[in-house]
Design a protein around this nucleic acid. Structure first.
Lengths: 198, 198
DNA sequence: CACAAAAACCAACACAGTGTTGAAAAACCA
DNA sequence: TGGTTTTTCAACACTGTGTTGGTTTTTGTG
């Protein structure tokens, strides 16, 4: 599972400072403007050493994103032992609390300074989870189901992004309730009128 | 409005071939791997000439995105003369038809090969439109309104992405109906059970 | 502790892309 | 045609890339 345990101390340190420096730089500028030289200068690591561990900046980013992703997945596996494949408000609130814990890195990976890979991974995870839990349920059609999941997944990601951008002022409980309302009754439950009409 | 009219023929041609080549390359690889040299080689334009018109690849991309964006805005201004600030199913279907017309460039700008700028611009446009039309309506709170718009905007973008990826097999009319259902009654109208529960 | 293995460092390399220059050639428009 | 604008061209210094072979340093272990 955790490969850092059997790692050489030197490797552990090197990877750590490289990652720290890279994240620091990502806060300042888009990944397209970040050079390997720059990362090495900041982390005081030889450029040759960087190449020994990563192919380039994008490889480094992917590794960081994957690490966070597996961490999220393991968290979800521990906390979503719900019956019948639905998520309770309490669990949802826990998930928002977890995001709050990891706010710095989450908001960074969902920001404009990086690519959409992390967002896509989250969407995909949501998808797989929906497929597995919805398999037993009746739905209008296979096609619509896919679109429903997509709308909800992107809606949730967008709301999470906004929440993070605003500094998470809205309480996690309210966020959980909001998501439930949006995914169950939709706009009708929150505003008097819809945006669109027939 | 259209600045191409008063442009020198040579400028018009140069910009055209550069844009064509750039879009061609964007179909093949992410923008991060595209060099100015490459664009110039493909379009048979001197590199100095490129610098006379654009700062770099990203500047070029922005200009292309802005052009498409202003085109979309002018289209919407012509077609959404709806009363009371809501969009009819017919208008929504027209919008989907328009997206279908511009499918190649839209799907490209929403793909992983480019940044999230275009997506953000669309979201922002949706936002401004909502603010102006919702101004007169009663809502639970200012804060929730913002979140509702965000959820819907991202949901719509996600569905449009998916629709484009699938080659737009689902008819525009069905897409319009789907969006209306999602933004009015939400999941409850389409499936027997919600993903989340209280 | 000592020693073999592994990792990091170093200097140097060829190569490619960048952004800018000044001047010549070509194309434009009136 | 003639003056203007644009493109082209060759050359420039500079920066980042990715890889080399060899040296130094650090590590885990018997």
């Amino acid at each position: 599972m955790d490969k850092t345990s059997k790692m050489d101390r030197r490797v552990k340190y090197t990877k750590m400072v490289i990652k720290e420096s890279f994240i620091k730089l990502l806060h300042e500028k888009p990944i397209t403007k970040i050079t390997i030289r720059e990362i090495c200068d900041l982390s005081d690591v030889n450029r040759t050493t960087f190449y020994a561990h990563y192919h380039d900046q994008y490889d480094l980013l992917r590794q960081l994103q994957n690490e966070l992703m597996t961490e999220i997945v393991s968290y979800l596996n521990q906390h979503t032992t719900d019956r019948a494949g639905t998520v309770s408000a309490e669990t949802l609130e826990e998930i928002f609390s977890y995001i709050k814990e990891k706010a710095e890195i989450c908001s960074l990976f969902l920001s404009d300074n990086v690519d959409t890979n992390f967002e896509n991974q989250v969407i995909k995870l949501f998808h797989e989870w929906c497929i597995s839990t919805w398999a037993s349920k009746r739905l209008n059609s296979k096609l619509d189901m896919e679109y429903i999941y997509t709308f909800s997944a992107y809606g949730c990601i967008g709301v999470i992004k906004k929440w993070l951008d605003e500094g998470m002022v809205k309480p996690t409980g309210e966020m959980a309730d909001f998501i439930i309302k949006m995914t169950s009754q939709g706009l009708g439950s929150l505003s008097q009128q819809s945006i669109f009409h027939t």
